[in-house]
């Protein structure tokens, strides 16, 4: 039993040594579920500035923890979501937004995909119109239709 206790102490000590926590901690959370839900939404849209492509909400970095707390403080003080985002952008720049704003230097990012679709799509349509196939064959006359069904009927077992 002694060795078990010793093991327990060692493990607890070892675990206490390393950096803690996975993302949002209970101590950070707001009492008001509606506000907390907004805070989570914002946390998912903000980038943790010291991590690699992680949202503030998913990060256990110190600075992410501070940012989550600041978001909640602002929300509790009555800020709108937009104001909270602006608060962060004022400090960390557009870098902090996981969805870049539409601006003079990001229009290509936003419109690139649709532009590809539009250009390639219209090129295809133009090509199709130019090709316009041979005109569709004239519809069968009644006589032909009768012969056809007769032929088809014959082949049916």
């Amino acid at each position: 039993m002694r060795s078990f206790a010793a093991l327990r102490t060692t493990i607890m000590l070892l675990l206490a040594l390393v950096t803690p926590a996975l993302a949002v901690e209970p101590s950070e959370m707001l009492k008001d579920p509606a506000l907390e839900a907004r805070a989570r939404e914002i946390g998912r849209a903000l980038r943790c500035v010291v991590c690699q492509n992680q949202a503030v909400d998913d990060s256990n970095a110190e600075v992410a923890h501070d940012m989550r707390r600041a978001v909640r403080e602002r929300l509790a003080a009555g800020d709108s979501d937009r104001q909270v985002m602006d608060f962060m952008v004022a400090r960390y720049g557009d870098y902090v937004l996981l969805k870049p704003p539409f601006k003079s230097d990001t229009w290509l990012l936003w419109l690139g995909g649709p532009l590809v679709l539009l250009l390639a799509g219209s090129a295809l349509l133009l090509a199709a119109r130019k090709r316009k196939l041979e005109p569709p064959p004239a519809p069968l006359t009644d006589e032909e239709r009768a012969r056809l069904s007769a032929l088809l009927g014959e082949r049916k077992p």
Partner: peptide, 15 residues
């Protein structure tokens, strides 16, 4: 963007 203007942006899940 970083190379041409030096501006930093992040493109993540919401985008």
């Amino acid at each position: 963007l970083d190379l041409t203007t030096g501006n930093k942006v992040s493109v993540g899940p919401p985008f």
